[in-house]
Design a binder for these strands. Structure first.
Length: 859
RNA sequence: GGGCGCAUAGCUCAGCUGGUAGAGCGACACCCUUACAAGGUGUUGGUCGGGGGUUCGAGUCCCUCUGCGCCCACCA
């Protein structure tokens, strides 16, 4: 037992106790525990591409609160953390930080030094470096960022078992990710296909449906005339993308549209400017009310074009290349003028090409009127800067129900195996799964990621055989097909006819992070561990990534294990600006976690997080943190006060009805908190504990402190024992929320960590009359009010308190008389029987004038 | 267009299975009271978004309208 400080303080307790917990292994997972004694948590590995913000602090605290509660109930808590460092986010950060870009065609340079380390000047043009050099920089920078992340999360007091740390690019994660992929491949759940895909022209990679978002941007309708080949005039269409005119493959109208009926019998038109002959077709997706009711189909302007192209068996005439620029070769344009015109477009970006085409149309007179500007939603990659294009390319997919109704239904049903907190979050999951319109595209044409672990045989003409990829043995994972060689081949055979070639792509980050339960549980590496933690008890995450992380994890678990990955999903809300708008970036940069920790203390910030209901979007409220700090300070001070009485003699019992009443109320709180926590409603537990705590400090302690001071008689001992019992329970009830403060005060009088102490139960708590204190303290409130209204100190003497009360509460009042007289400095108390409760207070300093209502304070 | 959530005191929110409106913050007044002045005591403040219904009784259940937010779809 350490000594109680003269002036208790919160300063420095974070560093002190973090260090102690680390040294003691306070949060180490005990893997000897059987599955039913384990509580396993699947935590979000934060993306290491910037800094942790207040939103992380918020949601990570919620998980930690539950972890700490579970640990105190005796569970062995499996609570790992990882860093999500692979992927595009890291690449982008590396590019910006060092002023470089990756060019796989460049050779490795030994001892390469980047031109900058942070903040390259704005006019700096990124220098091209080899893929291995680029990956080295990624590894350097993420290692550096991860140290900062770890420091912040430790300061936040998250009770991770740091020995379980993983990073999504490390060997174990790459092996796990590749193993899961190969299993998917072997069972036919992963497949490769050459097809139109959403494509970001800046990052030059395919992206998945889940990573796409709409943005409202400016555009314009252009009315353009196509010419009927039968000489019967023009067909006018409306388009926002006139630059795709050279890739037009058909016109389309609704089958029932009377205006175009005559054209459905095999009529053809020629495209303006380029003179390409295309058919006029009917399809139900054409909307008669849009534009002129007839549209041009291009390969590809949008996803509807893809549908039309597929369902109407149209040719492919792509003009936008993977870098977003117009291709050079357009063999389908045979018209001489058309070819000349197109030659001017080759190599241009979409935007430039549009400008030029519009100019050409004006000149040729084939545009009717001027463009009509509109604002319309356009699809963007969520991290991208230019609209997505649709480009045909070979990609890897994992079946996720987007193309198979039965599978979709199975995955929706997996949602029923999970208990959602709050329950309505399941709708978002169901809604997303039912709205899928394609399989999960997992390959990315990027560099810092887990390689797709396959090779392809090359035929005599060096064409890859994509239908039967060569796969590595699981024991050899992780592999990199660009440097490793498939079994049965020699390194010299790479890229030569009859030899092999490695798949050039990496998998998307989600393809790895969808395996966090398998990664953390060391699936197929440590079967004993995996059996003890999987399926996990709980997944914690924010609700905005239900469609990505939560769903993709469910897909992988469905295929590999035939089960939902967890029993509970706990969804946190978002952090909003104090004005309740979504937290802006600039704001987030100002209010960093470190600033808040320094200003209010970690426990105060955790208090704010812990008071937010699960799943509820919450405003950043610094005044709540002030309240949290006040609470922590109060806990220090009241602990000091109670412990200052010293330890009562062995065998001391709580005997006074007033003390038993307080304990009875506390018991009710304990039960409520336990029930709330069992339902993952940590916020209710905090609220109840806090409400009791302030009542305890302000009312109960004030009522009994004089008696407790008295020393060693039965009444004093009863008060001291009750105070200590309540304090012990309160420190444990607060422990999940205020881990540093509670550990500090616990250390003043207890052995071991409060975070390893048992969660309070009511079994051994004495029975008392909870209502008794309501009556007694009701009287005290009147006395206080009288003094306040008389503008005298609360220590002022009271000559008489005359109580009128129903007979059935007289006993309760009597039980409190002794404490009341001392707490209120009351000379005399009288009780009369009456139907209603009434309290009259006569201050000693007042001259009592009979009939003077001013001095009587009644109910 | 489909789905979900929210609407309670000036502000932030609680009010779980229907039983006479709650907390904190703020504001105001008072008190240097020996655990705590980064404290304490008290006061003020709401026809629970509008309308209708069920019920002895509705903030709470049902219908409807309005406003706000989020997700999804559409986006020639």
């Amino acid at each position: 037992m350490t000594t109680i400080p003269e002036k208790p303080s919160l300063d420095g307790i974070e560093a002190r106790w973090s260090q102690q917990w680390d040294a003691d292994g306070t949060y180490a997972f005990d893997r000897s525990a059987t599955r039913d004694q384990v509580f396993s948590i699947d935590t979000p590995p934060p993306t290491v591409s910037g800094s942790l913000h207040v939103g992380h602090v918020f949601s990570y605290t919620h998980t930690d609160i539950i972890a700490r509660y579970q640990r105190m109930t005796g569970k062995s808590v499996f609570y790992p953390i990882g860093w999500d460092d692979n992927g595009l986010a890291t690449e982008r950060r590396v590019q910006n930080f060092y002023g470089v870009r990756c060019d796989p065609s460049i050779a490795y340079e030994v001892g390469f030094e980047p031109p900058f380390r942070g903040d390259p000047p704005k006019d700096h043009r990124a220098i091209a470096i080899s893929r291995p050099n680029f990956i080295e920089l990624c590894e350097q920078l993420t290692a550096q960022d991860e140290e900062i992340f770890e420091a912040v999360l430790r300061q936040l007091g998250l009770s991770y078992d740091w020995s379980l740390l993983y990073t999504t690019i490390d060997d174990h994660c790459r092996a796990t990710s590749q193993r899961a992929f190969l299993r998917n491949l072997a069972r036919g759940e992963a497949y490769t296909r050459d097809a139109p895909t959403l494509w970001d022209v800046d990052y030059k990679t395919a992206v998945a449906q889940a990573e796409m978002e709409d943005r409202e941007i400016g555009g314009a309708y252009h009315q353009i005339a196509f010419h009927r080949t039968d000489g019967q005039g023009d067909v006018v269409i409306d388009t926002t993308r006139p630059e795709l005119l050279p890739s037009c493959v058909a016109l389309v109208a609704h089958p029932s549209d009377a205006r175009y009926q005559a054209l459905f019998d095999g009529a053809t038109v020629t495209t303006p400017l380029f003179g390409v002959e295309v058919p006029v077709l009917a399809h139900h997706l054409a909307d008669p009310d849009k534009g002129t009711g007839i549209a041009m189909i291009c390969t590809f302007g949008d996803t509807t074009d893809v549908t039309w192209w597929r369902e109407l068996n149209l040719p492919s005439r792509a003009v936008v290349a993977r870098d977003g620029r117009f291709v050079a070769d357009t063999p389908w344009i045979t018209d001489a003028d058309g070819s000349t015109r197109y030659a001017e477009l080759a190599g241009r970006s979409s935007k430039q090409a549009q400008k030029q085409i519009v100019e050409m149309l004006r000149t040729s007179g084939e545009m009717l009127g001027e463009p009509r500007p509109i604002q319309h939603p356009v699809k963007f990659y969520e991290r991208g800067e230019r609209p997505l294009e649709i480009v045909a390319s070979r990609q890897w997919y994992i079946r996720n129900g987007g193309r198979e109704p039965e599978l979709r239904a199975d995955l929706v049903a997996r949602g029923d195996e999970i208990t959602w907190h709050p329950a309505h979050m399941q709708h978002r999951y169901t809604n997303w799964v039912e709205g899928l319109n394609g399989d999960w595209l997992i390959s990315r044409q990027r560099f810092f990621g887990v390689p797709v672990p396959v090779w392809y045989r090359l035929d005599a003409d060096a064409n890859p055989d994509y239908d039967s990829p060569l796969v590595p043995a699981e024991a050899d994972l992780p592999i990199d097909p660009s440097t490793d060689v498939p079994a049965g081949f020699a390194a010299e055979q790479r890229g030569v006819p009859g030899g092999f070639v490695g798949d050039p792509d990496v998998m998307d980050t989600w393809a790895t992070s969808s395996l966090t339960p398998q990664i953390a549980g060391r699936w197929e590496v440590d079967d004993d561990l995996f059996q003890r933690v999987f399926p996990m008890d709980m997944r914690a995450q924010a609700h905005d990534i239900i469609r990505t992380w939560l769903f993709s994890t469910a897909v992988r678990s469905h295929w590999e294990h035939g089960t939902a990955p967890w029993r509970h999903a706990a969804l946190s809300g978002w952090i909003l600006d104090p004005d309740r708008k979504k937290m802006s970036k600039s704001k987030g940069n100002v209010v960093t976690p470190a600033t808040l920790f320094d200003q209010y203390g970690t426990d105060a910030v955790r208090y704010w997080s812990g008071s937010a209901r699960p799943g509820v979007d919450t405003a950043l409220a610094e005044d709540q943190m002030k309240v949290g700090r006040k609470l922590a300070m109060k806990l220090l001070n009241v602990s000091k006060f109670v412990l200052g009485f010293g330890e009562p003699a062995a065998g001391t019992e709580v005997t006074e009805p007033v003390d038993l009443s307080m304990l009875a109320r506390l018991a009710a709180v304990v039960d409520e908190c336990s029930t709330a926590f069992a339902g993952f409603d940590y916020a209710r537990s905090l609220e109840r504990t806090e409400a009791f705590f302030w009542w305890f400090c302000d009312d109960y302690v004030e009522l009994v402190k004089s008696r407790a001071y008295r020393g060693t008689d039965t009444g004093a001992a009863s008060a001291q024992q009750a105070l200590r019992g309540a304090l012990n329970t309160l420190q444990r009830l607060f422990a999940p929320f205020l881990p540093f403060t509670t550990e500090e005060v616990w250390s003043w009088w207890q052995q071991g960590s409060v975070h390893r102490a048992a969660w309070p139960t009511t079994a051994a708590m004495p029975n008392g009359d909870a209502a008794l204190l309501d009556v007694v303290l009701g009287v005290l409130a009147h006395v206080r009010r009288a003094k306040t209204e008389a503008k005298v100190t609360q220590r002022a003497e009271v000559a008489l308190v005359a109580i009128t009360a129903p007979a059935n509460v007289h006993a309760a009042l009597q039980a409190g008389f002794a404490d009341l007289t001392e707490a209120g400095s009351i000379a005399s108390i009288t009780v009369e029987t009456g139907d209603e409760m009434g309290v009259a207070v006569v201050l000693a300093t007042e001259t009592v004038i009979p009939g003077d209502a001013e001095t009587l304070h009644s109910l």
